[in-house]
Nucleic acid binder design. Structure first.
Lengths: 225, 225
DNA sequence: ACCCCTACGTTTGCACACAATCTTCGAGGG
DNA sequence: CCCTCGAAGATTGTGTGCAAACGTAGGGGT
């Protein structure tokens, strides 16, 4: 694996994992020594991340972690609403019994882990949720739609923890997963599309509310001198 | 403007304009001296073009102009079918009388230029068509959807001349533009969406037919020694 | 007291050089 | 005659140095 790829993945992880706050300055030399490589692969990584929409580059002024307004966040959800139900519908005829069982397993574990109580673990929900949606997208067998969706989803995933969900919305979200599995088992593409549309609408409401409320979060740079 | 940007735009023009055939090898040194810059900005341009999907990069094996199978072409049209009607619908409430007049003017000129006869000029149709669709997308006021659409449309635009259209399909396409304007004037988003869906379905049928028939086109590299 | 202009430090943009990898061509053995 | 192995050439990947542009602080002028 090349150094540029390593830098790319590491930076992506850092941004998506919250290690770098939105708006934070990304100096080339700082990142270079932080990742143990030269500036060249760092530049390449930053360029590609800019193409993905994770960082913003101003000529001669360097790169910063991208920030998103509420309007842009809503735009992303519009896009998801256009694509994910479609992908889910495509997945229906391709789902084997084994696939359905696997998805059911994932949805079931999400209910166990996500239900309120002493065993609730919202952080464990994130990889399960991701696995569920990724599996579904893979089943659709539609690389073009999948790529467009992935490009759109990446940015707002930054704060993609489930802490923003209130109990009611979370319960709905978990139920949706199970219902999607049911629709797959029934071979009903229209049903699956409808549930996915509802699923994203629910998520949109939660995220927009969180973003609107959390406008007060620190926009400070990480300029610890 | 930076050298990397110049290289990016020039390469894009070269690929989209047909100056570089799909599958053609893109040597860094060759491009560098062809554009009069060093390898560094060329590398950056190639990297970004790869992110756009116009070129494909294999590690240690260089870059080539991207190629698309018929299946991928159909995938792109699936994506357009998901996004463009949506964008057209969003444009409806934002369209002022002046906007409608402008779009009507464009659609009318396309009919004049595109109708069979001695004054037919298929090449002149391309910029008009592009202006029409761009105007419509701009009216939607939805940067996120617009960006996703633009990213998807770029690749297959390579052969985006209207020579593939038979008389019947071309007449339909021109009529669609006028009908979309009518829907805008009526303020009927559902109507506009439906016509746009039909418009893209028509285009899909034409392009897929052309791609299937034209599989015999030369896959030769430009290895002029 | 406020504004503008200038000089400095920092950072990015680009070019060049070296190292690592892949491809190709040729020779030897089976 | 074909296959395998090896070396040379070419190409990509990465590090480093230099020049240009930007941001900022300080001094002079109005």
């Amino acid at each position: 694996m090349t150094s540029a790829e390593r830098a790319l993945q590491e930076l992506r992880e850092l941004i998506l994992g919250g290690g770098l706050a939105p708006g934070a300055r990304l100096g080339e030399v700082e990142l270079a020594e932080r990742l143990g490589v030269s500036r060249t692969p760092v530049r390449e990584a930053l360029s590609r991340l800019a193409a993905e929409g994770l960082v913003e580059i101003s000529p001669n002024r360097g790169a910063r972690v991208a920030t998103w307004t509420v309007a842009e966040l809503e735009g992303v959800f519009d896009l998801r609403m256009s694509l994910e139900p479609q992908l889910t519908g495509f997945a229906v005829p391709n789902a084997s019994a084994a696939d359905v069982a696997e998805l059911h397993e994932l949805a079931h574990r999400m209910v166990q882990v996500g239900s309120p109580g002493p065993r609730q673990d919202l952080d464990a929900l994130v990889p399960l949720n991701r696995a569920f949606h990724d599996r579904l997208v893979a089943l659709a067998g539609h690389p073009t739609l999948a790529t467009a969706l992935a490009a759109a989803i990446h940015p707002p995933i930054v704060r993609r923890n489930f802490s923003a969900y209130d109990a009611e919305s979370l319960r709905r979200s978990l139920a949706h997963h199970l219902e999607i599995v049911a629709a797959l088992r029934a071979g009903d593409a229209r049903w699956a599309r409808a549930v996915m549309t509802a699923h994203i609408s629910n998520a949109r409401a939660v995220m927009v509310r969180a973003a609107t409320a959390g406008t007060t979060q620190d926009p400070t740079d990480e300029e610890a001198s």
